[in-house]
């Protein structure tokens, strides 16, 4: 990794971790969703640094431009009058123990494992991605279209007002 890549990785990494932490800790739903947006954007930056530029823009396109907006929309429809903080939880100690255990295990495993250094990135990932999606990954690619359709129908069926 070059100097600038390392610096940017640290910046985006810290940004991602802090905004994720804020998203799960804040008691205001709106701020939580906005922090999720910041987290996703920072992660898109990391994807770009890992030479996955298409994944990075898809992340911004689908997550930040789609899912976060959808979440804000749902929040505003479900509690337009409520601006108070949500109830704080009573399971904080249990949650933090499990989270420390899971996180500690993952970090310990990745620190202990011997991995080869990062190989040089491909100059342009897009043609390879296109080829992969139309050859090896064709079936999952088609399948995700079916799943998306099913999800749209399911969402419509769930929110449709029942006629008496």
């Amino acid at each position: 990794m070059t100097t600038a890549t390392t610096v940017l990785f640290v910046v985006f990494g810290v940004l991602a971790a802090l905004s994720a932490l804020y998203a799960v800790l804040t008691r205001y739903l709106l701020r939580s969703i906005v922090a999720l947006g910041a987290f996703l954007t920072a992660l898109a930056g990391i994807f770009y640094l890992l030479a996955a530029d298409f994944v990075a823009v898809v992340q911004i396109f689908v997550y930040v431009g789609g899912i976060v907006v959808l979440m804000l929309f749902a929040l505003m429809l479900s509690s337009s009058g409520v601006r108070h903080p949500t109830a704080s939880s009573d399971r904080r100690s249990l949650g933090s123990i499990v989270a420390y255990a899971v996180g500690g295990m993952l970090v310990w495993a990745s620190l202990r494992s011997t991995l080869p250094g990062m190989p040089a990135a491909l100059p342009d990932s897009v043609p390879y991605l296109g080829r992969a999606f139309l050859n090896e990954q064709l079936f999952p690619f088609e399948l995700i279209g079916v799943i998306l359709l099913a999800a749209v129908v399911a969402a419509l069926a769930l929110v449709r007002k029942e006629r008496a």
Partner: peptide, 21 residues
Amino acid sequence: LNVGVVYFLAVPGMTVIGLLL
């Protein structure tokens, strides 16, 4: 950017968050 066209479609999408907020 090798994905400039998608970038251009994706980034203005963040505007909506600002408008909603």
